[in-house]
Design a protein around this nucleic acid. Structure first.
Length: 339
DNA sequence: GGTTCAAGCGCG
DNA sequence: AAAGCGCGCTTGAACC
């Protein structure tokens, strides 16, 4: 009595089951009604189970706050990780999720100050690759995605369209992760040939980046490890694997680790500098969280401006790269407002 | 009662 | 044949 109701299987999971991952359902939603409903449900269920229901249970009764644990020897790249609760994955990208971030508030008479490095990994790529175009884009304090779009599409920086910038941003992030033209095609929903063309044009405009990628793969293979600017090593046991899949995954880690790892080194240096500065100057301010490229401080309201200036100086001075480090600082009564 | 695995998804 | 790095948490199923 029921008709067969089977949505097309667009992808299978590693165990061979039909995938219902977000991007798959997103594509199915163009032709069927159910996937959108499932996606909406999932968004809310995730927020409720992970944050809304859980965080209040994790408030410490003595302090009235949630206290995370940071781990220094977990992430392969030298980042910190955060658990119980994880405060490094509090929602921000969508409005519904941001309501959870709004629950993180400062003590009476205080504000939350969020200070983050802008485009730190791309700046590190400029430093490591010595690419002239990338170095000059950061030296001129350009919007780097606009600068990339201008190069790739051959237009003036201020003539870049929103779509062109979005595409350039995807390319820039893809590069940091070692993405292939195939992955770029999938991400952008364009065909492989078009994606390959973008990559070719990118590397023609930024030859230093191309050289850096190739050199990094070669050195990883020769040494069995890659290093950050400060000498932190990531060993890559699979870099010479005969299994192509394993080897290519190791190559992507080799590309990414110097950038992600150097960023981790720099913010650790900054944390030490910021904390020391606050104590030395006896400022009513303290670092309360770290989220990879961001420090969150709780600052007595009347000290806001002076602390912001000091934090900016400490963070910007945490490394001397071939490009300046830029710091964005926001202030608010809650963590969302501080962005 | 507990653990482990797979799948999915929140963040940088 | 696969195809984008690094994490931690939740649910549901299988199992002890």
């Amino acid at each position: 009595m029921f008709e067969k109701l089977q949505l097309p299987v667009l992808r299978k999971t590693p165990t061979g089951q039909p995938s219902t991952a977000e991007d798959v359902l997103e594509e199915l939603a163009a032709s069927y009604e159910l996937p959108r409903t499932v996606l909406d449900y999932r968004t809310l269920a995730k927020l409720k189970s992970t944050y809304t229901d859980k965080l209040p249970q994790q408030i410490n009764s003595k302090t009235g706050r949630v206290h995370t644990s940071y781990h220094q020897a977990v992430a392969q790249t030298g980042r910190l990780s955060s658990s119980d609760p994880n405060l490094q994955n509090i929602p921000i990208r969508r409005a519904e999720g941001r309501r959870i971030r709004q629950a993180f508030i400062a003590a009476p008479g205080h504000v939350l100050m969020a200070a983050d490095y802008s485009q730190i990994e791309l700046r590190i790529m400029a430093h490591l690759s010595n690419d002239a175009g990338l170095l000059s884009a950061f030296a001129a304090d350009l919007d780097v995605h606009c600068a990339t779009a201008a190069e790739v599409f051959g237009v003036a920086v201020d003539a870049v369209s929103a779509d062109q910038r979005r595409l350039a941003k995807t390319i820039n992030f893809g590069l940091i992760y070692g993405m292939s033209p195939f992955g770029l095609a999938r991400q952008l929903g364009i065909d492989r040939g078009a994606a390959q063309k973008y990559v070719d044009v990118y590397f023609a405009r930024y030859p230093g980046v191309k050289r850096f990628m190739d050199d990094t793969r070669m050195q990883a293979r020769a040494n069995g490890f890659v290093e950050t600017v400060y000498g932190r090593r990531l060993y890559l046991p699979d870099i010479r694997a005969s299994n192509q899949q394993l080897r290519q995954a190791a190559e992507r880690s080799a590309i990414n680790a110097p950038m992600q790892g150097t960023a981790a080194d720099i913010i650790k240096r900054a944390m030490i500098g910021v904390d020391a500065w606050c104590r030395l100057e006896n400022f009513p301010a303290r670092v309360v969280m770290q989220v990879h490229d961001e420090l969150v401080l709780e600052v007595r309201e009347d000290a806001t401006d002076k602390v912001a200036a000091g934090i900016r100086e400490q963070m910007a001075g945490a490394a001397e790269l071939k490009v300046p480090l830029r710091i964005h600082i926001g202030v608010g009564m809650n963590w969302d407002e501080a962005h």
